[in-house]
Design a protein around this nucleic acid. Structure first.
Lengths: 369, 369
DNA sequence: CTGAAAGCGCTTACAG
DNA sequence: CTGAAAGCGCTTACAG
């Protein structure tokens, strides 16, 4: 075991730090971290430039508030030392961590890709770090994860939260919190307007001659599922279309596939699915069963995820502005964090009907014909 | 403007903190954060239980090292105060942040989904927080992001890094760093073994009667692209198959689609693509051009991403054990962070051939026939 | 414009 | 088993 002599790292004692990190000796005898030089601090810069740490701090944080030449020297010294501020040390006195959390129910659900990317974009554009976790569709995991993350971040963004209203209220009492794809009381939320896309989809189906439509439902606990069903119901009835809600085991490809029998039994000629995953699954099951799409069954998905235009037939769908939702939600969260009372009102986020190949005129009979 | 009277938050002065946070008065007059109660600290627990903060710290961190009844009382008090440790405050004396960074080139690339999920799983299983960012296929962004993140994390995992070997060495001199899907010198890395899947694919094609195979290449800067080509080259030649590398504009669906003309011109009867995205794009272009898959062109993708089994025909592919790579890489990173010299050797991560519908016997002529 | 000092919320060697 | 004290690397009100 190599023992490090007392002064091997730092011959000059620091101005006001007579004792160095307690475990330094042992740490330096180990491999990985031991070989790495400890990062420079503002005290190193102070020593190098002959000013106080306070001045270094000011020079680096409030440009223009100190002597321009001193600032120059300090910046040069910082540069030459490869100085990077220690975010934890800054967070302590300021209470600001510079990081934001994003919680989704399922990382591998393609719906979130663009949303996450949108959020990440505005986070890094504003020099924030994004912390990222998934709840695996479990409210319990969602809650414990949010609680675990909260102390380390300035605010959290909950996407399609499965928590109860009360749990969400409690979380938002601790730190700034924003919701995406869900609405709870007055808590800041960013949700798309599902109606435009739904109206277009309904008009399209009606025009093709469909009279009886099914909605393959999403999770009970999903606010968005409710919102979609409500908009569908309301607008179908007004158009003289009959609409029926069909339950599915899960909002996944397999969940959609396994719902085919119930869809067929319902006698509808067209079905709108809670999301594209289910629509894709339904299509796959139709193919396996020899049910032609769209000849015998028209299918419309929701979201327009990656892959929905790659199938045969390509999936007709109602697109959600996912990236825009992610961006808007993140901006909203930043406004909350900054206590920015009059954040710019965000523009509405309408859904949009995307016509592809999985819809067509109904044949005379129902799908089992 | 509502001004908060001096003692409105905290009537009892703290044992050893005569002065409270400097900006408290102003902060408390604002909205958002102003309404939130400041989180409890170990001093609150100490006061409540009549012990010192040191004892509270020990009780919470080294169970069993203090009086069992005292520990109980402290835990109860912590619970009743809703205490959560402040990770920034802990990080300062210990130098451990409890967070790990994950950098990918493109968040929306489905290849990373399972890898990211695997990494997230082991991070949260070991009570670590995952910080997440994308470099948008730019080495410059990758570098600045890594540098920005480093001070805030205990280690970073670079997935399919586009940096130069030197840049990677430099980064790893600062903090623990692990590579996934790339190898650079002795830097800890987790890469799959591409050979088994490639051999199976080649044998399959040979058996079908193909003699001339194309490889639709990925990005120049991609280590994995090189690895795949090398394994392909080596094993094709040994089997008496001719193989040719065909360049593509980008490793995306569109990049694959726009390469069709070059593929056709090459005269190969089967093509293996750098990734599934390109395979999917190529298939889409074939459909648009009326080129039958697999009758006139066999296509094999790489990775087995979401959606590759949803197309018609379903894409035959070489699967990478993405989730396992993410998990292994994260475990490796944790071992680095802990200076764990003898981390368990991870098992090999072989690729695997997945036969679906996009491969078949070649017709007499080449695809343009 | 600049410095000395106190404090952010923890941890831990040291000394009972 | 427990406490007093010092320190982690910053920020900022206060006083020149």
């Amino acid at each position: 075991m190599v023992v490090c002599p007392p002064m091997c790292h730092d011959g000059q004692a620091r101005a006001s730090t007579p004792r160095r990190r307690v475990d330094e000796q042992t740490a330096s005898t180990e491999r990985g971290n031991g070989n790495r030089k400890p990062p420079a601090t503002i005290y190193d810069i102070a020593r190098l430039t002959g000013v106080s740490a306070s001045t270094v701090s000011r020079a680096l944080n409030k440009p223009g508030r100190i002597n321009v030449r001193t600032e120059r020297r300090i910046r040069d010294a910082a540069e030459s030392l490869g100085y990077r501020i220690n975010p934890m040390a800054r967070a302590l006195p300021t209470g600001r961590t510079g990081t934001l959390a994003l919680l989704v129910s399922d990382i591998t659900n393609p719906v979130y890709f663009d949303l996450v990317r949108g959020a990440e974009r505005v986070a890094s554009a504003t020099d924030h770090t994004l912390v990222f976790a998934e709840s695996q569709e479990s409210a319990e995991i969602e809650l414990s994860t949010a609680e675990r993350l909260q102390p380390a971040v300035d605010g959290v963004l909950l996407v399609a939260s499965r928590l109860s209203d009360e749990q969400i209220f409690e979380l938002s009492a601790t730190k700034p919190l924003v919701l995406a794809n869900r609405r709870v009381g007055e808590i800041p939320a960013v949700v798309p307007d599902v109606t435009p896309g739904i109206i277009e989809a309904l008009d399209h189906l009606k025009q093709l001659g469909h009279r009886s439509i099914g909605y393959l439902a999403g999770p009970e606990a999903s606010w968005m599922n409710r919102a979609r069903w409500d908009a569908l119901f309301e607008n179908a009835v007004g158009r003289g279309l009959s609409i029926v809600e069909i339950t599915a085991a899960a909002p996944t490809v397999d969940g959609g596939a396994s719902a085919l029998r119930r869809v067929v039994a319902s006698g509808v000629t067209a079905v709108i699915t809670y999301n594209d995953l289910m629509g894709l699954g339904l299509m796959r099951a139709c193919r396996a069963e020899g049910i032609g799409v769209p000849e015998r069954l028209s299918i419309i998905g929701f979201d327009d995820i990656f892959g929905s235009d790659l199938t045969t037939p390509a999936l007709t769908t109602i697109r959600s502005p996912l990236a825009a939702i992610g961006e808007a939600a993140m901006r909203r969260l930043l406004a909350e964090v900054r206590d920015d009372l009059d954040a710019d009102a965000e523009p509405p986020l309408p859904t949009e009907f995307v016509l592809r190949e999985s819809t067509g005129a109904p044949t005379a009979g129902s799908p089992e014909a």
